[in-house]
Write a protein that binds this DNA or RNA. Sequence first.
DNA 1: CCTGGCTACCCAATCGTTTGGGTAAAGGTA
DNA 2: TACCTTTACCCAAACGATTGGGTAGCCAGG
Lengths: 349, 349
Amino acid sequence: MDDSTAGGRTVTLKDLANELGIHPSTVSRILHSGSDVARGAASVATAQRVRDLARKRGYSPDPQATGLRTRRSNLLGVIVPRLSDLVLATMYEGIEEAAAELGYSTFVMNSRDDPDEQRRKTETMLARRVDGLIIGDAHLDSGLLRELSARRVPFVLMNRRVPGYPSATCDDVLGGRLVADHLWGNGHRNVAVIAGEPYASTAVDRTAGFVDRWLALGGSISQNAVVWSRFDTAGGREAAETILTDCNPRPTALFAVNDFAAIGAMGSLRSHGLTVGHDVAVVGFNDTSLASELPIPLSSVRSPMLDIGRTAVQLLKQVLDGERVESMMLKPILCVRESSALVVPSLAL
Amino acid sequence: MDDSTAGGRTVTLKDLANELGIHPSTVSRILHSGSDVARGAASVATAQRVRDLARKRGYSPDPQATGLRTRRSNLLGVIVPRLSDLVLATMYEGIEEAAAELGYSTFVMNSRDDPDEQRRKTETMLARRVDGLIIGDAHLDSGLLRELSARRVPFVLMNRRVPGYPSATCDDVLGGRLVADHLWGNGHRNVAVIAGEPYASTAVDRTAGFVDRWLALGGSISQNAVVWSRFDTAGGREAAETILTDCNPRPTALFAVNDFAAIGAMGSLRSHGLTVGHDVAVVGFNDTSLASELPIPLSSVRSPMLDIGRTAVQLLKQVLDGERVESMMLKPILCVRESSALVVPSLAL
DNA sequence: CCTGGCTACCCAATCGTTTGGGTAAAGGTA
DNA sequence: TACCTTTACCCAAACGATTGGGTAGCCAGG
């Protein structure tokens, strides 16, 4: 009577078959095959009776049994640095949606960007027999990816890319370029970059996109105007402090490759008596929902986070189907707000 | 040679048994039983050989097969309104940790606080044969909970409570009280509350805790000084607008039951030319990492989000073990910052 | 009448583990 | 020596679904 599984007594194929006086295999074919197979398996009338009873009894196939037999779990593993990072959480929402549409369920785990944890979590996922992995915390120098490749584990990268592996990312280089164009166009000639973690392609690409374009426009950027930092507010604050100390004359604009770092930087500027948007322009990246809500609304590059998540699922699906896949880079757009809206008069040409 | 499961050819109990010339059941007992059973099952020497080989071959038991046999999946389902809400994401981190320690893996799904989605996601979880559910999006008037109870689905609530069901929450009433004491102590006598969604216990309890204490202190709060709102910045902004229009004289302090709503309110105050912390005090709730980083750092009630997640897992474990459980309410503390630090001189007694 | 081809099913093995019930051999006791 | 315990294993039946291979009965064509 009592059953330890959540939901109590569950109905099996055999139950349905017994009740209708037919064989379980017939029921299986009717319920879980394309209509082509189902057609050959039973008469239209029987098929209808089976489907009706299944609905009435609330039959739902046991994924463990199915998985055991078919060797597929319909489970996707997702690894992110931390889900409390708004960016990754939003991408995950996209993943969840797209995965559900394809009949997959998803696991998420946090790796905190720690290589040991990355490895541990990956193994946990594989032990759970996921069909494939979406890796949202790839490091540029990762040996783990090579290893997974060698073990023929199906996976795709998300958010961060690593050359040689399929990935769904924002076109971060373009994003950086947009910011360079914007700041240059507003008359800035002395800028600095809060560049993020050097192991993350997001940071590297955004920085490179910015710097390369800046140089192409005829600008120059000194060594110590590019400061690598953590992605959080504290990291941004520290980086800004460094810039304010090291750069002389003080830059008129700051590009932070991440909104949180930008917010930290704004805090630092404020405590130096500088007004963001007036004395120093600031631009962030990702356009998280906070950017527009800040006292001085933050200009930010909007990356299509939800779509990146969805795209990652589609790519992984292709990998699982044995198709060849191309990495996808989704286009960002720049949202200019008060933090960088002003043209620098003294420098305007 | 090729194997559709991630990780390629996997080692089974039978493989190990064959290689050692013993029976799979013996291997199973050695590897997956308490040392008491294992002792009776094989000689110490054999046990050691088995364990060594298992390690060497990288054996990991197939959870589908295990689940099929034991009727337990070691999977926990977690349902939250949205993972892109920092509060829930942080709680989930606690869940993930605690669950891993107990050998469980966790699924998360977003319900967007929509009753249909809640029901759908719940069914999806049950179809996956989770052993139990952690429900982070309970509505006070939910029929779903009654139904799950009737179906004897093991579950606990997290973050929001509903009388009659076990839950792990912050002591929200206390949180509200702390804010009342603080504002009253700073001389405020005319306050308003941005109360959140009336279907969430967090909103209701924080508001009630505040209001009841306020009255107990001898204060009074008019009807239209309590405004229900969404939990996000837009909701907070609108609520603040309402308050500024409807309340005369203008309140000297605002308590928002959620940091994001508080941030929205701060925005609204600013656009009315009011300085937060000077003209109007603002206090939020949850002490999300942003609170302290805002230009005017936000006072906020810190709730132990990570621990709430961990506690939820422990409670669910107890439910699964058939033990009786008591709801847990974790203590919050108030972090006073610039947004509400000033004493109101004109009103100080 | 025989053959061939449907239609509408059934049969049984299989996936990897777990677990209740053996049992043969060794050792101890009366 | 007969009998009882251990020890150290083996055996086989599940769990629920899938799937390659039947097959009985019917109809049509030659």
